[in-house]
């Protein structure tokens, strides 16, 4: 009996709890509203659509945990997307193109990291500026949406790997990297740097280094997201990632990552993304007029956010 109570207690303290609960609650509620919403085909296609945001959510969470914020990841994803299309269209072999896209994404992440960690710019405003730069870059590479990819790519993405949806690979790789990183001593140092960079510095933590890692990793996640969305869409669009940065941040907050840094984990934001993705799908497929859809999703997002923050406050982690 005691063990059960202990388990329950530690589950309640898990920062990812609200996101997990919200997601399953919506999933269940949805099954009553929408036919076939628990069918494998629906779930897989929904997962495939949500994967790009999940990738970005991972990167966003790590940056927030280390005490900063990055709102340029959506723009980075757009760059990755159009770059990949352009490279493939120019005949570059798939493997090389993938490597180049990931390298470019990590380079953009490195720029963010340099400006913020080394040059000490304010992360919010600086990534605001770099998101404009990266959007511009994407537009320069592909001013008009278009292009196409080999059918094998889409087929791979929409297919299965070892019984699981192949799309999951794209976010599982960054997730695995993060979990490994967390197991090293760097993990707790990153959290320390996020909570209070001065205290971490005095404790001998290489604050700048940890933050640069976080930003480069976020770039890598954006690159993975770009690969995912390119495989999913089969085309390039310079504005594709515009709204994703905000969704990722909302997913992170709903997932229990504290915006002040040092608290939370990536698992929560994955469920947060799933929750947000489910909202979009539900609203899209419901009989609500398209003119109300945007408003409805906006309101649901707002309330989801408020709820998650209220929950965070109650668990005693409110810090401003």
């Amino acid at each position: 009996m005691n063990r059960a109570r202990l388990l329950l207690g530690s589950l309640r303290k898990m920062s990812a709890m609200p996101a997990i609960l919200l997601f399953f609650a919506l999933l269940v509620a949805n099954s009553f509203i929408m036919a076939n919403s628990l069918s494998r085909s629906f779930l897989v296609s929904y997962l495939n659509n949500t994967t790009p945001v999940m990738c970005i959510a991972i990167g966003t969470s790590v940056v927030i945990i280390c005490g900063e914020i990055d709102i340029s990841l959506g723009a980075m994803l757009s760059v990755g997307n159009v770059l990949l299309i352009k490279l493939l269209g120019a005949g570059v072999p798939y493997q090389a193109a993938v490597v180049l896209v990931l390298a470019a994404s990590m380079a953009m992440g490195l720029l963010n990291g340099f400006l913020i960690a080394a040059m000490r710019g304010s992360s919010l405003l600086t990534t605001f500026a770099t998101s404009t730069i990266y959007s511009g870059l994407a537009l320069l590479i592909m001013p008009v949406p278009g292009g196409s990819v080999a059918r094998e790519m889409s087929r791979f993405y929409n297919g299965s790997l070892l019984g699981l949806p192949a799309a999951a690979l794209f976010f599982m790789i960054p997730y695995a990297i993060w979990k490994i990183y967390k197991r090293t001593t760097h993990g707790m140092r990153l959290y320390a740097a996020g909570y209070d960079r001065n205290k971490a510095y005095v404790s001998g933590v290489n604050v700048t280094g940890e933050k640069i890692f976080a930003f480069v990793f976020a770039g890598f996640c954006a690159g993975m997201g770009a690969l995912a969305i390119t495989s999913s869409l089969g085309a390039g669009d310079a504005l594709i990632g515009a709204a994703m940065s905000m969704m990722a941040i909302s997913a992170a907050v709903i997932g229990g990552v504290s915006l002040s840094g040092g608290y939370g984990d990536v698992t929560g934001s994955l469920f947060g993304s799933l929750f947000l993705g489910l909202i979009t799908v539900s609203v899209l497929s419901s009989n609500v007029s398209p003119f109300v859809q945007q408003l409805a999703s906006g309101l649901i997002l707002l309330f989801g956010m408020l709820g998650a923050m209220a929950f965070g406050m109650k668990s005693g982690k409110k810090r401003n």
């Binding site: 770099t130 537009l139 310079a238």
Partner: peptide, 9 residues
């Protein structure tokens, strides 16, 4: 437009 964004950024 793309270059304009870059310059603004």
């Amino acid at each position: 437009q793309g270059a304009r964004f870059v310059i603004q950024g």
